[in-house]
């Protein structure tokens, strides 16, 4: 695992995340979100989970970001009017980050390097998905169907 690559990707991702959280224009924030997800996918590649990284790029960059952009375009009245910034939220976020970092750095069992691991193949993932995790897989399928129907019903024209 390459340390320089990790630092470059992490700085890139966190800068894009800060931009997505603080930029005033909604469309710019949505495009920064795409950069954040590309960065997270790069971290997944670095960790050796290529399949999940590709799935993240397909689902988030391909579907969720497009959905966010469509929603921004369908709610045009408020675009560019987000003036209010609540500084209490910033204090809470910094406190959470400080607490998490303090506890991570003080846990000695987390200071380990990665063991040597054989590459995870898609065949292995598929076999695990179809044997151990077949019941959660069916539940996720049901959940996605319910979410699809629910989203359709929510945005249907109301009849009065």
């Amino acid at each position: 695992m390459n340390s320089a690559a990790l630092i470059i990707i992490a700085v890139f991702t966190l800068a894009a995340a800060l931009a997505a959280a603080t930029l005033r224009k909604l469309m710019h924030a949505a495009l920064s979100l795409v950069v954040v997800f590309v960065g997270i996918a790069a971290l997944f590649f670095l960790l050796g989970a290529e399949f999940v990284g590709l799935a993240l790029v397909f689902i988030y960059v391909g579907a969720v970001a497009v959905l966010v952009v469509f929603t921004i375009l369908l709610t045009p009245r408020d675009v560019g009017k987000d003036r209010g910034f609540n500084w209490g939220g910033a204090i809470v976020a910094v406190a959470v980050f400080g607490g998490l970092t303090w506890s991570i750095l003080n846990t000695q069992s987390l200071a380990v390097v990665a063991p040597h691991m054989p590459a995870l193949t898609v065949k292995q993932i598929g076999k695990t998905l179809m044997t151990i995790y077949v019941w959660p897989l069916q539940c996720v399928g049901l959940l996605l169907t319910a979410a699809l129907i629910g989203a359709l019903i929510l945005v249907m024209e109301e009849k009065r």
Binding site: A20, A21, V92
Partner: peptide, 20 residues
Amino acid sequence: FLIVSAALFSTGLLAALSRR
């Protein structure tokens, strides 16, 4: 990796709590 993830989580929390 955990610290990078914690920073990302805090940034998301910042966006969720402070924007209107």
